[in-house]
């Protein structure tokens, strides 16, 4: 908080209220936190805790009810639709739980897609996409359609797509939610390694406690509120904290 430049994402008093008929459901309730550049941040919580909503708010996919979210110093909820689209092209990457690949396209074309929107010439983007798929270990599956691939392979295509335009921030919404534990670990390693290699910021939503060990910072969400924030990067040297994982810490 001393040096604002350090924080790539700033969430201030973010609030999201859904109206379901006459009922009002507060999904995200006055949440504030910061994420540093290059950090691996994990939004951890049970299902229905509002963590996915928070992620969507941070990505500008959903509208805030009140508060503000700044990414790279820009208030993303004040941007025009076009401005936000351009911002997503250049700064954000997405990995989804259900992969969200376009079934009509091959793996290569799926990975190319963000570059298509960025008006990048076909030769260049083919090359970038191919490299990316090689990096995730799918160099031999370029021409396969998503329906011809396993879940783990599909998610690796999804990761390649998220990272292909070299975004500063990658949002991952339960990236391993549909995968078995072995594949989950593989996928997480890929994400972690890629982010480390390019000093990219990862914001991941998960309900799986095992995955929190990949994070530098864990934000524990409960009922739309922050239960606790655990900064593991500062406690790196203190192994015991990782072991005792969810020791209650003073809420900020």
């Amino acid at each position: 908080m001393k040096d604002k430049q350090e924080y790539i994402i700033e969430v201030k008093n973010a609030k999201k209220i859904y109206r379901m008929g006459k009922e009002r459901i507060t999904a995200v309730d006055d949440v504030s936190f910061f994420i540093k550049k290059g950090e691996f941040c994990c939004l951890y919580g049970a299902s229905g805790s509002g963590k996915s909503t928070l992620l969507n708010l941070m990505a500008g996919i959903e509208k805030l009810t009140s508060g503000q979210i700044m990414i790279k110093g820009r208030n993303i909820h004040r941007m025009s639709e076009k401005g936000l689209a351009k911002f997503r092209q250049n700064t954000l990457g997405f990995v989804f739980q259900s992969y969200n690949l376009l079934n009509s396209m091959t793996a290569l074309e799926n990975v190319e897609l963000p570059l298509v929107f960025k008006h990048i010439r076909i030769k260049k983007r083919r090359k970038l996409a191919r490299e990316m798929l090689n990096n995730v270990g799918l160099g031999d599956r370029l021409k396969h359609k998503p329906t011809e691939m396993s879940g783990g392979q599909q998610q690796r295509v999804g990761i390649a797509r998220a990272f292909v335009s070299n975004p500063e921030i990658v949002f991952a919404d339960e990236p391993t939610g549909n995968l078995d534990s072995k594949t989950s670990m593989e996928v997480m390693d890929i994400i972690k390694n890629m982010a480390k290699a390019n000093n990219q910021t990862i914001v991941m939503v998960t309900h799986d406690q095992n995955l929190t060990k990949y994070a530098d910072r864990i934000i524990h969400i409960f009922d739309g509120k922050i239960e606790e924030i655990i900064d593991l990067s500062k406690a790196d040297e203190d192994e015991s904290l990782i072991e005792t994982d969810m020791m209650p810490v003073e809420q900020t």
Partner: peptide
Amino acid sequence: MKVLGCVV
């Protein structure tokens, strides 16, 4: 496509 940054 929208989330991936496709303009309207």
